[in-house]
Amino acid sequence: MSQAEVVRRTGATEGARKTSPLWTFGLLRSELLTTFRRWRTLALLAVLAAVPILVGIAVKIETSDGAGGPGGGGGGPAFISQITNNGLFLVFTALAATLPFFLPMAIGVIAGDAIAGEANAGTLRYLLVAPAGRSRLLLTKYATTMAFCLVATLVVAVSALTVGALLFPLGDLTTISGTRISFAEGLLRALLIALVVAASLIGVAALGLFVSTLTNSGIAAMATTVGLLITVQILDQIPQLHAIQPYFFSHYWLSFADLMRDPVYWDELVKNLGIQALYAGAFGSAAWARFMAKDITA
């Protein structure tokens, strides 16, 4: 964050000091702009967009030499055996492949950087000089992180859809329950799945934001968030811990595949969204409690 940015941020607000609701949107807009203009953010999005391209090309090469379908035994990420028959399945495969690690890692970087990054760069106190108030600044930061969740997921989905359309045929598709749905409904379900995947990341985002209020080092906050993510993913694999696993934010992540059943099986989807809401509530308010009381030294 450069000095000029801060000047622009505070400068933009002077006219609207009295009309605070509008001011919030101004703050949010400038936050969004600064976040999405960063090279780091763009690089993260580029990496995410590359995953479906790699998967698509790998599947294409694997199947072009006349051999049978990929992953004959059903190995690999979910839905991968269906890609050659319908490019739309690349969307689901790409989301299933990026959700366990790539997406939350990107969120961890953005969320961890949200407060600690400003503190690290020495710009946090300037932000607070503006009459935004700490709660509002924190809310804005969280909103920006969630916007990034949505954008990152959509980048993966759109990139996968493009690659899938270019490399593979499109058309009516078979749900995993064996019934057929039209391509339009398939697209609708793909969009729904992308939204659910984005919502699945809310928990990590809140966790990252909380960690970010604990430290003044952006790198430390990012590393802690990503480290926590990896730890939880590993713990989720240990069968002896099955009693606490349903409370891990990542436990029901892959339930988005239930949207491809017919009729849709909602149980785990609802549990997933409930867990995300719980994490958002708990860590969001913890971040607020911490940030309100924090000594701003940088």
Partner: peptide
Amino acid sequence: KAARYVVPVAVVGVA
């Protein structure tokens, strides 16, 4: 300061 932490604790408790 401490009172603010009641909020996250309450959220977890209610859940």
